[in-house]
C-alpha cells in the first residue's frame, strides 16, 4: 500500500490498513503537525486535505486514501519557503493561544478558500463549525480567515 502525502509517496507495507490516517501521519511518517483531540471526529484538530476536501483524519482509514493526494499542515509551506498567505494571516492576527487546534482550523480554511475565495461570516462559521478551540480564539480565527481571503485574491 502506498500513499501520497505532501507530494511525497510513502510505502506503507506492513501497516494495518484500518489504521486511521492520523496515526499513520504522526507515528509512521513523523508528521506530527496534525493533532489528536478526540478520536471521534468531534473536534477537528486532526483535519487534513484529501485532494481539495477537508477530512477528519482520526476516523479516516489509511486504506480509503487510495491514489488521492493528502496535504497536511506541513505541506502548505516547506521550511525553506515563505509562509503561504493563509499561514501568514494566522501569524499576523496572532490567533493562537495554546495553538493545538490551529493546524486543523488552518487546513479547514484552506479547503474553504479553495472552494469559496470570499466567504462571509456565515460561510466561515459553517465551514469551521466542526472545529473546537478550547482556548476560545474563534473571533481571531474568523478574522484570520478574512485576512487570508483578502491576501489570496
Amino acid at each position: 500500500m502506498k500513499v501520497s502525502v505532501n507530494n511525497t509517496t510513502h510505502d506503507l507495507t506492513g501497516i494495518d490498513p484500518s489504521t486511521p490516517l492520523l496515526w499513520v501521519l504522526r507515528d509512521h511518517l513523523n508528521l506530527v503537525g496534525t493533532k489528536f483531540g478526540c478520536g471521534i471526529s468531534q473536534c477537528g484538530a486532526c483535519t487534513v486535505l484529501i485532494d481539495d476536501t477537508a477530512v477528519k483524519s482520526c476516523i479516516y482509514p489509511i486504506s480509503a486514501v487510495g491514489d488521492k493526494d493528502v496535504t497536511t499542515i506541513e505541506g502548505l509551506a516547506s521550511d525553506e519557503e515563505e509562509l503561504t498567505p493563509l499561514q501568514q494571516a494566522w501569524v499576523d492576527v496572532d490567533v493562537a493561544q495554546c495553538g493545538y487546534c490551529q493546524a486543523g482550523q488552518i487546513m479547514a480554511t484552506e479547503a474553504l478558500l479553495r472552494e469559496n475565495p470570499n466567504p462571509t461570516d456565515a460561510d466561515i462559521n459553517t465551514a469551521l463549525a466542526g472545529h473546537l478551540c478550547r482556548c476560545g480564539t474563534y473571533l481571531r480565527v474568523r478574522e484570520a480567515v478574512k485576512v487570508a481571503a483578502k491576501h489570496r485574491s
Binding site: 503537525g33 493533532k35 502548505l76 494566522w90 496572532d94 493562537a96 495553538g99 493546524a103
Partner: peptide
C-alpha cells in the same frame, strides 16, 4: 506583539 511560536504553530512543527 505576536506569539514567538506562531511560525512553528502554523507550520505544524513539533512543539507540544
Amino acid at each position: 506583539i505576536t506569539g514567538v511560536d506562531n511560525d512553528a504553530i502554523v507550520r505544524g512543527k513539533p512543539l507540544f
